[in-house]
Design a protein around this nucleic acid. Sequence first.
DNA 1: CTAGGGTTAG
Length: 844
Amino acid sequence: MATTLRLSPLVSAAPSLAAPTTQNEPKTTAMETSPTGSLRNCKTMNEVKQLHCHITKTGHGSKPSTVTRLISTCAEMGTSESLEYARKAFDLFLGDQETKGMLFMCNSLIRGYASAGFSDEAILLYVQMAVRGILPDKFTFPFALSACSKVVAFCEGVQLHGALVKMGLEGDAFIDNSLIHFYAECGELDYGRKVFDGMSERNIVSWTSLICGYARRNSPREAVSLFFEMVAEGFESNSVTMVCVISACAKLKDLKLSERVCAYLGESGVKVNTLMVNALVDMYMKCGETDAAKRIFDECVDKNLVLYNTILSNYVRQGLAREALSVLDEMMRQGPRADRVTLLSAISACAQLGDSLSGKCCHGYVIRNGLEGWDAICNAMIDMYMKCGKQEMACRIFDNMLNRTVVSWNSVIAGFVRSGAVKSAWQMFNEMPTSDLVSWNTMIGALVQESMFEEAIELFRVMQAEGIKGDRVTMVEVASSCGYLGALDLAKWTHAYIEKNKIDCDMRLGTALVDMFARCGDPQSAMKVFDKMRRRDVSTWTAAIGAMAMEGNGERALELFDEMIRQGVKPDEVVFVALLTACSHVGFVEQGWNIFRSMKSVHGISPHIVHYGCMVDLLGRAGLLEEAVDLVKSMPMDPNDVIWGTLLAACRTHKNVKIASYAAEQMSTLSTQRTGIHVLLSNIYASAGKWDDVAKVRLHLKEKGVHKVPGSSSIEVNGMIHEFTSGGDTNTEKSQTASMLQEINFRLREAGHVPDLDNVLLDVDDKEKEYLLSRHSEKLAIAFGLIGTGQRVPIRVVKNLRMCSDCHFFAKFVSKIYNREITVRDNNRFHFFRQGLCSCGDYW
DNA sequence: CTAGGGTTAG
């Protein structure tokens, strides 16, 4: 918007007109016919001023014809200087003269204002016309409406509409087209459509205005279908129409449709200009056809600035920062001069790569070209330096900024979060003068990143209390928090919130929801969301396969994978992890092998060490420990602590001390070791009764300062999450839990159950073992759930470690005796207990 | 006289 132009009052003296800055006589070339007529040929304001001075000297300076010509020449130049000069002449003229001939001057000025972006001045002048009693005509309205469109001055435009209807000007194609454009820019396409429908004779501009309106207002599909409607009615498009339609295709990211439009373009013979090349490059980029876009780009002989900026920003958006920098290089050598839009892309490319060296070069360019006054540039640099790990530099730019925007604050905050300095981020979040949705999302994301899921949801509640509605980014964070917490009620609420608030559920959010329901033990809901999704990428399919894996539905997991392949989605490393995990959960040894082998042979993906880990797990769980060892020995890479740890875990399940010792020995040769492994090892020795070895490992752990992660379970009751740790607590609520637990244990014993003391991994006497076992956190949580929820309410527990076999039996027992459905999500999978049986079929 | 391209943070 214009800020530099100062509008003088309508009837004010403009004395400077008579005293132009230079005294030189104008060039004779500009004076070929009459001096007044020559005004039209002036190219610069200096020429205009000189000539006008000359005319004034001859006494014709304030003749209507002179002023009219002067105004229209100045208006056409469209600079703030020329418009100001024209305005002075106009105001001076207005002071002296009657209203004759004024209409044309007003129209010229309004047009000048409108086309140069001084929309407010244009609108104001229209209003002032009315005050002076100058009636607008059919030429006034298109200019005035275009000014209203630019600043989305809806009320003013509607008044214009009313006025022109009164004057009977509706039906004029130019005016109706301007109205369509105006309503479209205001986002009131229905009104625009009404005008369009009411037109008796539409022309190409009518169609194009409406098409463009739909394209810009998030109805690109409408735009394209309108275009084909237009073609069907026999209208010939021109380049403007094509640019609009192509940009609609870009928004749709629909390659098939794009190709149809391009086919039409080829047949139509419409000349391809630079604007269209630009639109085409943008469209192919957005459709993912990067190479095609680059080819068109390369073929273009007169690449302009915008074209460079288009390809650069698209490369950056697609994460192709290297390509962006190489185009930038070409541009610097032989292209147009980079502007601030270019630099925005360049800087974010550096940010993406974490390339502080190139980033510094950009910074230098910014300073050399005086671009540091643009806050978007500074913001991009803050982000870049933050992502390059140069926090001080980022903060320096932030501190030096004159006009820090929300984005500046958000960039710093996000930088702090990324580096793990959540405290600093929090401090800034509280200090910032105004926060917006992105600020909140960043902080909620920070809590998720720190695994503080309850706090994340709490912050989301605070945000709502402040009257800020979440968007799809917020909901991805909230959904993943629900998932990690395994809080199904909260998850259902989240889903309902999204639907109620009509939050645009894109692929990412959809995938997050599938994953959320999967982790909350509601695979039906997960699949319902999955089925409704229009677009799915590998991660979406992976989430669904994961849902089936957690449920222990190996067949469906494999079916989903086949379906994914049939639909042409390219598998990645991650989906194979989900698949192999699914096989592992149900003991699909043969299928697991097939998938594992197909990775390389069919899909061209070399198994990563994690895939070997999955296979070791699969074989190990199935009791094929020797086979697992053979696989480890045949691995093309060195086994890491995870591999040995997985093998150890299997040894524990199958009580194989021999292989466990071997694995432990191998592991001890590794330089890096995960702490959890030592715990596991000590557990294996413990369950085999080798307490000396346990003591050794425990000592080793102590030396390293490692503590065993205590078992902890949580349960959601009435929207609140309650957490229990092994051993239990003594407050009132929980002591009720203790007596409930006692009751269950009593009934268990009555039923003849003997506790499996092997599950206690401490060197204590059996009585102590039995006590500790009876107070495993999941038992506490289940007991609490029995008290805290209604008769028919399923009990859902989330556990941080793997469930032990005694607790597994306990849960089955409770589900039968108390006639309750129980779900336990441990750190590996789900168990659905119902009528004394578990969904895992005791294989886990 | 009316219609068209590129812009930072989560």
